[in-house]
Design a binder for these strands. Structure first.
Lengths: 214, 214
DNA sequence: AACGCTACCAAGCAAGCGCTTGGTATTCAA
DNA sequence: TTGAATACCAAGCGCTTGCTTGGTAGCGTT
């Protein structure tokens, strides 16, 4: 987060993650992370990301927030509804972050680079806890839940497509470029170690950008 | 089937899938698909790919080959060992296919394009049933099993790296290009429909190739 | 004929799963 | 002071899970 400031150094209007979350909570778009439901959602995002949805039990989740397993169903109708809620809130938060990143970019090239970096930050370094769940656990959702999340995702994907079109990637097929990028970026979850001193997220974003837009 | 045979595989090029499988079975690298164990592995590959490992029960698998669930453990020690065996055989088969494709290419550019197409064929259209499991269910494997599969995968990845180096992709980082390609290609499983009249696999391979090597 | 081997069945166990039920402590507005 | 709402506990139900056990039918070899 902080290192990305090199590009937009003199723009103090950017919101911090906490401020962004606060704004979204006030607008009623996100659950207050301090509420019982919010604490459950945050813990679920962490656990589903680490262990996977199927390998996380409601007892694991309950223990994580310090309650008993049955008490979970005072807040959610089913385990699948928890996954659905996590995906929705993650999508909303990631969209706001992505829009903020895209808007503060100067030229079209810089905009696409900012999108790539924003998604990498979402996947790694806890910028958006649970983001990788969107790809990895998609098939764990019922079709109705998939539809709900898909609608929320439209804004996110529109920002991406705009950036790709403007940056004029080769191949003349922005939708294909995006689809390849989704896979390429989300798969970094399996190999990229942000703690490595070898490669930082801005550097990885830069290299990826130059491979897709030479 | 055993790991020592990996280096010794001398498979002539231009074989049909059935002939290729037959050759590998004769060399003892693959389980005979007509044997009980082979039928179980094929069924497991299909089910794990369709429903995911966690959502496939041993009863599902047994029913698929027409036996009772307990009888499975006459052939495998555990459910996880089935997944491990599937991944090993898939890797061996995909490696042989990939090498055959790479060797029959003329120029370096054509070689990389052939690799891309070979992996796309493996993911889709049942050329290598269960190939996408290698990425999607990686975390369902124990660490010891991961190590076993990883060793078998080395040959496969060496072919890829050679092709990328020779094709001179932008960015001057062949390992990164491969890692982005792994994600990009495996993610096509979630959106590409080979039955669509809109885009065939060779066309998709071509477009992907031109995005990564403009 | 007796043996050993492979492939399987029939039955079920122990553990773990998501989820339900009935009740309690606390808070806060009326 | 009462009553409704919230957040949770305690206990456990019904079911599914991976896997085990003891036994058997068929088959090729000796």
């Amino acid at each position: 987060m902080r290192e990305s400031a090199q590009v937009l150094a003199e723009v103090p209007t950017q919101l911090s993650p906490q401020e962004l979350i606060g704004t979204l909570v006030e607008q009623g778009m996100l659950t207050d992370p301090a509420s019982p439901r919010g604490r459950l959602l945050n813990a679920a995002a962490r656990l589903f990301e680490q262990r996977g949805f199927a390998r996380t039990t409601v007892r694991d989740l309950a223990a994580e927030v310090g309650i008993l397993s049955g008490s979970i169903f005072h807040h959610f109708a089913s385990k699948e509804q928890i996954l659905c809620a996590v995906m929705k809130e993650v999508t909303i938060f990631a969209s706001a972050r992505m829009r903020s990143a895209a808007e503060s970019a100067g030229c079209p090239q810089e905009k696409l680079r900012a999108c790539i970096q924003s998604e990498l930050e979402a996947i790694h370094e806890q910028a958006v806890p649970g983001f990788s769940i969107l790809v990895m656990e998609w098939r764990s959702l019922s079709e109705e839940s998939q539809e709900e999340v898909l609608q929320l995702r439209e804004e996110y994907e529109r920002i991406w497509l705009d950036a790709i079109v403007a940056a004029k990637c080769p191949g003349d097929d922005p939708a294909l470029v995006r689809r390849l990028l989704v896979g390429a970026l989300s798969h970094t979850y399996s190999w990229f170690e942000p703690r490595d001193r070898g490669l930082t997220i801005p550097e990885l974003a830069d290299r990826t950008f130059h491979i897709f837009t030479p």
